[in-house]
Structures are given as structure tokens and as C-alpha cells.
Design a binder for these strands. Structure first.
Lengths: 150, 150
DNA sequence: GCTAAAGTCGACTTTTTTACTCAGCTTTAA
DNA sequence: TTAAAGCTGAGTAAAAAAGTCGACTTTAGC
């Protein structure tokens, strides 16, 4: 039950773009440096996000990437689904009803996986990039406070 | 976000033992046949479940495996955690607080993964093997009904 | 127009994990 | 005593994940 680095890196990259939203195109190189991710690898991930319509690219000098929509309009679920494929603990959830499992027995487990999937989805969809940026800035505030009183 | 076959097979095997609970030790071979899982592979999985205290073995002729506790006392979460490792979308959730991520920024995502983990856990812990056996027998009833009316 | 800073594309490699397989051993009911 | 079970550890093949490389295209700014 683990995310691959694709989802983790991709989310961090999109979060980075969200933090710089409004500043024009952000070069992938700078995102990779800040997030400590291999530039070439990140290139691949962001290409997927672009094709899925979550990010836009601006080619040429002074180019880079921008979120395709406002940070409020992009959920963590949107990003994870694109990079990790459909959220489904077992494959048969992606098949049409009745297309898998001959034995009804086996399908008892299916109901459980469905509930797991739905609960993951609903958690992931409940966070937007804007929420994350808010939280990050609050954390920085707290840090300052803390420093102040030392 | 996918389960490996370890969790899937292991759960099916334990479900099989639950269906035969009270009938004495069930040989792994028969479980493997019913569930269409490689016998040798299943041996490895059930060994892990045994060491974790979820199943008991009876060696020698007429031996086999038995659930270590009543089916009501074993949840799907117990089984999955043993076979798939701790439920944690990202590794840093298994570290102690503050041991990971230097940058507070990075840790904004951590809060999200924590909620995902907790929601998965609570779904998995809400099903016991007894629930699954009940459901399977109901499904068989329904099947008979269905057949009856054709 | 040239140049350098960007993104684009596809193929390649390495590493890790998964999913088995095998052989030989130990235990024990009948 | 024997055959049916579990136990153990090593080995392996295939797949997926993670990352690398190099050549190409686009475009702002000089």
C-alpha cells in the first residue's frame, strides 16, 4: 500500500508551482532544485501532468510551467490519479462488474477494496493545492514565532 | 496505490481458513487449490501470518493450518498490515516525528498522507473474517434464489 | 539572425521488488 | 515405518520503478 515516487514527486512539484502561482512560468530546473528531484525525471512526470491538462508549458527562453487552473481548482486526487493510475487496491475494481472473478467467494473481498478505494479518493479529493500553500505559510509563521521566543 | 498479490492471496487464504473454521487443521495444499494460488508461494505467505500470530500450524500427517483466533477477532487490517507492511503511502510516516524532511514545506504533504493512512486503516479494521464468511454465505443464498427463478 | 534558455521526445540502463520455484529437511498420525 | 503434512533458505525470472542520456524544437532578447 505505497505510493511510488511518481506521485510523491509530482505532488511536490505541483505544490511548488502553486507556491509560485502568478509569477509567470517557472522553469522545471528551479522546481527540481528546490524539491531535490532529478531534473530529467521530473521532466517526464510533468509531461504527464501537462498532457492531463493540469499544467501548462511555455516553451523557449524565460519559459517554464504554470498550473493550468487556479490552485483552488486542483485537488491532490487529480494529481495522484494522473501519476499513479486509477486508485484501486486490486485490479478487478477497474474491470466492469462481473467481468472478473468467476467464483462469488473471491468477490467478497471486492466489496472491501471498493470501500478502501472510495475512502482514499475522498481524502485525496478533499485537499487542494491552495490548502497546501495555506498550510505551508502557516507553518512558516509558526516557525518564526518559535524562533522569536528562543 | 496498489496492493501486491501478497495481501490479496493472504487475505483469500485466511478467508478460506475462516470458512473451514472448526473443522480442524486445513492443509495448505487444499487452500491453494481452492483459491488457485501457487502452493509454494502460499506456504511463504502463511508462514508470515503464523509468525505474526494470526494462524497456527499443526505439523505432521493430517496437519495443516487453523486460525489462531476466532474469525470475529481477526480483521482484514490485521492481515494486510502483516503481509504488506505498515500501511503508509510514503515512508516518512514510519519515521518518528521530525526525523524526516528537513524542509517544513515538504512536510505539508505528510499531513495528507497521514489522513489517507488513517482512513485506509479504519476501513480495513472495520471488516473481520467473520463478516466475510457471512457475506459469502449470503451471496450463495442469493445465487440459489436467482437460479430458482430462471 | 544568433544565441542561450527553456521545453520535447524517445530510447536506454540500472535497481528494486515481486512472484515464484526448488530442494531438502522435520514432524507426526495411522 | 511410511506418507502426509509443515519448515527453511536459497535461487531465479520477469516486471516495474527510477533515473539517465542525447538529440531536437521553440522562442525571448540581444
Amino acid at each position: 500500500m505505497k505510493l511510488s515516487t511518481r506521485g510523491e514527486y509530482g505532488l511536490r512539484a505541483m505544490f511548488d508551482l502553486a507556491q509560485h502561482y502568478g509569477e509567470g512560468p517557472i522553469p522545471i530546473k528551479s522546481v527540481a532544485e528546490r524539491q531535490e528531484i532529478s531534473e530529467h525525471y521530473l521532466e517526464q512526470l510533468i509531461a504527464v501532468l501537462r498532457k492531463a491538462g493540469l499544467a501548462k508549458s511555455v516553451r523557449g527562453a524565460q519559459g517554464g510551467y504554470i498550473l493550468a487552473r487556479d490552485p483552488e481548482e486542483i485537488t491532490v486526487g487529480d494529481i495522484i490519479r494522473v501519476l499513479e493510475g486509477p486508485i484501486a487496491p486490486v485490479d478487478c475494481l477497474n474491470d466492469r462488474e462481473g467481468e472478473c472473478c468467476e467464483r462469488a467467494e473471491t468477490c467478497v473481498t471486492r466489496g472491501i477494496w471498493e470501500k478502501v478505494r472510495d475512502s482514499i479518493s475522498s481524502v485525496l479529493d478533499s485537499f487542494t493545492l491552495a490548502d497546501m500553500v495555506d498550510k505551508a505559510s502557516k507553518m512558516q509563521q509558526d516557525d518564526k514565532h518559535y524562533m522569536y521566543y528562543i
